[in-house]
Nucleic acid binder design. Structure first.
Lengths: 193, 193
DNA sequence: TTGACTACAGAACGTTCGTTCTGTAGTCTC
DNA sequence: GAGACTACAGAACGAACGTTCTGTAGTCAA
């Protein structure tokens, strides 16, 4: 009753490459199937399982589970290279994992190394939940001189200050009111190779 | 000779909502146009301008400029700052940003602080592209004693070794063959509050 | 060894797709 | 005020699309 997982992953790869769901005939080519009827029944099952669904215009589109990722735990059997695809893995879509409030969430690219000791490197994307205030100890994105600044929010003699996570940088003590853009709720880094 | 920018943004909104490019008739509805011929000529121009292109199967797909977004990120007007992706490109999804080959990509949770100097903290999820070999200098996920280990791959006197990014930990010199699970291509961190 | 089930192949069919061609109302230019 | 151009409307058409139905080879259990 379950559809060949190879079909799903081929479709996911196709989508990652083209940002589009192919037609039934193209899926047939992709899957090595020459019968459209069989493609259709596979698609039906993928729909039932939540990997695909339809737009209001009746076009196929990725479903809720289409972007799920496995979280691999230590392999049960060592030695076998394919050992990581076992049952019992958590499934997570990265977006859901990081974003709780889509309408309030933005990404800010990190410049400089002032937060390097908090594991925040230059070029990383910080996931920010926009809100005008934060708690002491949070990592916040503040606006200083029309620039985004990512720092720890601390309190010093009754006033809020911005503390970097790098001894080479000084703590910032805003002259007037500190303008907070949002709070860091996550981080995304891409390793280019 | 240029196409109405409203058409493009409506199409982008549709795509953001459905992850799929609509058909000509659906675009007609979307744009308030009842002539498919006119939709076709608009699409042609969007293709010429790089916002749309075709898959090998001749399906319409987003082009290189489709996700482009001109953001005045540097001078943030205080009070109402805009989203802050200065790449010139907006992201469809974070997933898309990190995952190139869904079928080979898994997530591995980081244990310990042995890679702390590379900005990889305990509890982070490392995005791994599964492959049996890697290049010197890559951060790899290897399997040591049935456990995942994340380290730099280095070469030492002809043999591969695993070097941590933390002076408190020793370099690992595998006795026999080094088993590589995959290569790190990204990192995801959630800040729980 | 029969019956049920799965994983496909192949063809038929009505619908929808994108293309193309003709037509027209408004605007701008000279 | 005539010609050129733009922004659509509308219809026609073949190709491609998704659906459905019939058929078959293999597997498994009873």
């Amino acid at each position: 009753m379950q559809v060949d997982p190879g079909y799903l992953s081929k479709l996911q790869d196709y989508y990652a490459k083209h940002q589009v769901i192919p037609s039934y005939t193209a899926m047939g080519k992709l899957w090595g199937i020459s019968a459209k009827s069989w493609v259709a029944s596979c698609v039906t099952r993928l729909k039932e399982e939540g990997y695909l669904k339809l737009t209001p215009d009746k076009r196929l589109r990725p479903g809720a589970r289409f972007f799920e990722r496995k979280v691999a735990h230590a392999p049960v059997r060592a030695g076998l290279p394919d050992a990581a695809l076992e049952d019992g893995y958590d499934l997570v879509t990265i977006d859901d994992y990081l974003v709780k409030l889509p309408s309030k969430t933005t990404l800010v690219r990190v410049k400089g190394d002032s937060m390097i000791e908090a594991g925040i490197l230059e070029g990383d994307l910080v996931v920010v939940e926009q809100q005008p205030n934060a708690n002491v100890g949070d990592i916040v994105v503040a606006i200083i001189d029309d620039e985004f600044t990512i720092k720890y929010l601390e309190r010093e003699r009754g006033a809020f200050v911005l503390r970097p996570a790098n001894k080479a940088y000084p703590t910032i003590r805003p002259k007037d009111k500190l303008e907070i853009f949002g709070v860091m709720v996550g981080l995304v880094r891409r390793v280019d190779r």
